[in-house]
Nucleic acid binder design. Sequence first.
DNA 1: CCAGTTTATGAACGAACGTTAATATAAGGA
DNA 2: TCCTTATATTAACGTTCGTTCATAAACTGG
Lengths: 198, 198
Amino acid sequence: MNQSKNTKEHILDVSLKLFSEKTYYGASIRDIAKAIDKRESSIYNHFKSKEEIFEQLILKFSSRNFGPLILTDQLINIISKPEKFFILLSENLIHFWNSEEERMFIKILLAKNSNGESKKYYSIENYLNDFKALSEFIFREMISHKFIKKMDVVVLSQEFISPLFLAAIELILGLKSETIQKSLIKNHVEFFWNSVKK
Amino acid sequence: MNQSKNTKEHILDVSLKLFSEKTYYGASIRDIAKAIDKRESSIYNHFKSKEEIFEQLILKFSSRNFGPLILTDQLINIISKPEKFFILLSENLIHFWNSEEERMFIKILLAKNSNGESKKYYSIENYLNDFKALSEFIFREMISHKFIKKMDVVVLSQEFISPLFLAAIELILGLKSETIQKSLIKNHVEFFWNSVKK
DNA sequence: CCAGTTTATGAACGAACGTTAATATAAGGA
DNA sequence: TCCTTATATTAACGTTCGTTCATAAACTGG
C-alpha cells in the first residue's frame, strides 16, 4: 500500500497478507519479494530468515494496545445504560475483528499450532485473553456501579465474548455476510442482558 | 496405526495428522509416503494428486454422523432434568471435540481458507452448523416438553454452543489443560440454565 | 564530494517439491 | 497355472524452495 514507508514495515505488511492467505509454508520469500517489487535476496538485508519475518509479525501485532479502539468515548458515555452499551460494545468488537488487517492476523493465529518448538509464540488463546481482560474490567466497573448483577467477571466475559468472537471466526474463515451479524448481535445482547440485569 | 487396513484409508489417516500439524503446504507427498512406509510414487496409485487427498479427507470427515456420539442413551435418559442434561451434553461435546482425531480435523478446518477457488469446500462454518442443528433439535424438544422457557432455538443454540466450542478451539490450538474445562462447563451451564429455566 | 554504510541485484547452491514414466512385484480370478 | 489387474519401486523431470555471496547502486554524514 504505502510504498514510501520503510522497507521493513512494508515487508511485514505484505507478509501479513501472504501468510494469512497461503499459510506460512505456502507463502514463499519470493512471493513476499515480488509483492514489494524487489528481489528475494534483498529481503535478507532486513530479516535474517523467513522464520524471523513471521516472529516479528506476530510480535508486532501481539504488542498493540487496541483498548481505545474498542472502549471508545462514545461507548464510555453510555455505560449507565447497559443494554445500549452492550450493543455498541459488540458492534465495536465485531467491527474491529472484521477489519481487513485484523482478519488477516486472526487467520494467521488460527492456522498456527502451538505445537512443540513454537510454544513460546503468541497464540489465539493469548489473543482472546487480551479481550477477556478488557471485558472483565468493564464488568467489574458495571458491578461496582450496580448497573448489573454481582457475578463472576470471568464467567461474564466468557459468556459475553464467546458468541461474538466465534461469529467473527465464521465471518473470517467462511463466506458469511456481515449483515447477518446485526441480528446476531441483537439476539446475543438480548439474551445476555436478560441474564445479568438486576 | 492399523497397518493392514487398505492403503487408501491409511494414506488418509496419516494425511490427517500431517496436514493438521504442518498445514497443507507444509506437509509433502514424501512426508505422507514416509509415514505409510512406501515410496511417494505409489501414492499416485490411490490418489491423482495431493489436492485430491485433501479433498477426500475433508469429504470423509464432513459426511460422518456424529449425532449418536453426542446424543448418547445416558444423555437422553435425563432430558427431563435439564441442568444435569446440559452438563452431560457439554461434557460429551468437549470430549468429542478434544478427541485425537477430531482435534486434527478441526485444526485443518481452522487453517483452511474458504478463499476463492475453494469456496465449494466444507468449512468451519458448515462444521459448526452441524452441531447447531443438533442442539436446535434438542432445544425444540425441551421447549415442547416445557422443560425450559419458550425461546428462539437458534439463539439458544448459539448461546449454548459458542462458549463450549471456543473453549475447544483454545484447547486445540493452545496449551490449555483439559482440567480447566471442568469448571468452564460448570460455570457456563449455570449461567445458561439461569437464563432458560422456567 | 568523498567515505562509509545501507540496501539492492543477479547468479548460484543444494535441497525439497509435485508429478510422471518405465518397470518390477504381488494378488486374484479363470 | 497363466493372465490380468493392482500396487510397488527406482529414477528422473522441471520447478520452486530458503539462503548465500559477490557486487553494484543508493543513501548519509562530514
